[in-house]
Design a protein around this nucleic acid. Structure first.
Lengths: 176, 176
DNA sequence: TATTGTTATACTCTATAACTATA
DNA sequence: TATAGTTATAGAGTATAACAATA
């Protein structure tokens, strides 16, 4: 990431002190590079733009939640476990659309931090029932708060109306 | 990717023979899983949905261009080089928002396949001027055609009007 | 036989740092 | 001293395959 990331931008030039929210509808954003390079043939591919959007959004998320050391994948796991206490690793994998092998490492890390616990299921002794620990539930208050701060930044960026519309439009990809 | 990917779907259940294009406005898409797991608290995060959209779109892209063995990163490099013959690796990195170290490997692979060549610049003997080879220019015809087939699928999915709107809305992330 | 969780391997992408050759 | 390209390393994330325990 050369200089198109929020982290980099902040690192390279310290934020201008107490500048007031400029203009409202077009915040200065990823690149500040004076670029004369044409992206012709690329910017009419939605996948390319969605990719760049995802990178920007994730980096803002990571930076916003750095104080609690929670990354996007961990956040989504915690959120689904919180909403579905007792679900299995397999169910979590399916819900998130990731491999069950990946869930193992995800839960390993969260369990080591005492945010999540594996309980052996009585119905099916192969599977583990996932729960937030008491610590995990407490932590989720702050985590969720920071995540909403992040989401506010995204909302301000695209506009509240667009944000809502995008959520609806993209929900088809989440398998719901 | 459990079963939320186009590839998986095709692999797991052979497409129903010659079913006619169902309904037009809501193609059956990523998940066919009967899922009772709540994604509450997750589906109001644009980053999560954008991530899933990106995964889906990229997998369709990879599958569509499998016959020419071109991946999204390679496609974007080829496209920018085509539109800006003679640009340096540094300029390419900045335009795509990737690290210059990454460009090295990207160009290595494309040069090995004789699609791209590094020419030493006379103005600055540190830098390389990137060009498509004759082979590369010929290959780009088919590559671009396949990429447009892919894009058509994306357009059909979200709707032509939405597609156009999304391109405009997300262009802010491409640093343009 | 099939499924859940696990372990292991490999490959892509990202993030860094250090080196060289130029400028 | 700064920059362009290179090399190397480390960490996510992804894609697979195989295995043990259990169904």
């Amino acid at each position: 990431m050369a200089n198109s990331t929020p982290q980099r931008k902040l690192a390279q030039k310290a934020a201008p002190p107490a500048r007031r929210p400029a203009r409202r509808t077009r915040r200065a954003l990823p690149a500040r590079t004076t670029r004369q390079v044409s992206l012709d043939g690329l910017t009419d591919h939605l996948g390319y733009l969605v990719r760049r959007a995802q990178i920007w959004i994730f980096q803002d998320f990571i930076r916003t939640l750095a104080s609690v050391d929670i990354r996007p994948g961990q956040y989504s796991a915690l959120t689904v476990i919180k909403a579905n206490p007792g679900l299995s690793q397999m169910a979590l994998a399916q819900a998130l659309g990731i491999e069950r092998a990946r869930v193992v490492h995800l839960i390993d890390a969260l369990e080591a931090r005492r945010l999540v616990k594996r309980q052996s299921s009585r119905h099916d002794r192969r599977s583990h029932a996932l729960h937030l620990t008491a610590d995990g539930q407490r932590a989720m208050v702050r985590i969720r708060d920071l995540a909403l701060q992040h989401e506010k930044r995204v909302t301000d960026l695209v506009g509240a109306g667009n944000h809502k519309m995008l959520l609806r439009l993209f929900s088809v990809f989440a398998g719901s």
